[in-house]
Amino acid sequence: MLKKKRKEQERKMKDSSFIPVLAETMTSSLNDLNIIQIFGFLLGVLGLIFFLGAAVGMLRFPDFYTRMHAAGKGDSMSTMLMLSGLGLVTMEDYSLGSWLVFVKIMGIVLFIYLTSPTSTHVLMKAAFEDNHMPLDEKDLKKAKGKKK
């Protein structure tokens, strides 16, 4: 069955121009999707949005401690969303092996969930004991004025 489909597609590829064939393959693969995979795509795109927020925050915030807020939170959350999305997408059949892969991916998520606050805390402690004080209100006003 699959081979027949593929042969047909190859023949069409030879016959016609490229773009309609591309559209046809895309729509046919969209029809093959189940709802779990669509859910996985949504999770992955959401994770990308959160990671964009973290990156922009790292670029934009005025001092180290506020950058820590962006990095420590956006990082763990976007990793969680993207990995669980990928885990759902790559589950082809529901056999024991694919379930094991899914559980391993969830293990990475759990690990990052545990370690991200810890590394944030350690870094912050190191910076605080190295006499980097957080911004007070005067400095903050100056930094905001620059942005304007």
Binding site: F51, A54, M58, F64, R67, M68, A71, D75, S76, T79, M82, L83, L86, I105, I108, I112, S116, S119, L123, A126, A127, D130, H132
Partner: peptide, 22 residues
């Protein structure tokens, strides 16, 4: 500006590299 900013960014990139491997 400080070494801590650099470590923070390296940490974020490393976490994302784990995602990239998957």
């Amino acid at each position: 500006p400080t070494a801590y900013d650099r470590i923070l960014a390296v940490n974020v990139i490393g976490t994302k590299t784990a995602v990239l491997l998957v």
